[in-house]
Amino acid sequence: MLQVDGLTKAFGGFVAVNQVSFAVAPAEILGLIGPNGSGKSTIFNLVSGTLSPTAGSIRFEGQEIAGRPASEIVHRGLARTFQIPRPFRKLPILENVAVAAYFGRNGRIDRGTAVERARAALALVGLPGDPDARTDGLGAAGLKKLELARALATQPRLLLADESLGGLDHGEMQQAAEMLRRVRGEMGITIVWVEHIMGVLMKVVDRVMVLHHGETVAEGLPADVVRDPRVIEVYLGRGHAGA
């Protein structure tokens, strides 16, 4: 479904992502882990069109999307969430999601349908309360849910989820992880998930890719990756050895 080859992004002399290649199969959940500054979010920015790569290829469902505008990539069926939630503060909660439902489909649906899809997405992520309320009243968990609802409302086939568990308590983390499982299981959406909360991530993903200084360190099944000496050295630490 997603094929990334030789992806490179340099900011002047600093190479944030260096010759990274990976593939994601339909309905798979790929975990992307690594220390801060390892290039995870940059890869998301490159795949989602927020940034243009310096070199490399990104093919989504067989089509080259590297360097294409972010809005066009959404229309092709690839959505993302942001590590730090970016709600539209001028819009009520429901409209935040409705605008995604409408423009995510490139305006091919009417406003009524967009609002219905927005309600469904809000219900799916379990965002309670008055949908006409402003986003100012949402806490960290609420804003994360809003991010996810907005991305799902675009009806993607591939979701890039950037640290969906950040700022959540233990119970909320379990709920969020369960929700991602359902998104994949019930909706058939492929997911690439960047996360630091290893305990939850490893239980959900099918495969893991580990990045360090913009390069791939390891890739494979979660059980194998956590035993990889290089992964233990650069990211997990000795405490995870033999986990």
Partner: peptide
């Protein structure tokens, strides 16, 4: 119109607006 919602979203955050499919 939805253009109003799109423009309000753009005024708030162009990157996030583009990330939900709005052609800024």
């Amino acid at each position: 119109s939805m253009t109003r919602s799109a423009m309000d979203a753009i005024a708030d955050d162009e990157t996030a607006a583009a990330a939900v499919g709005i052609n800024v």
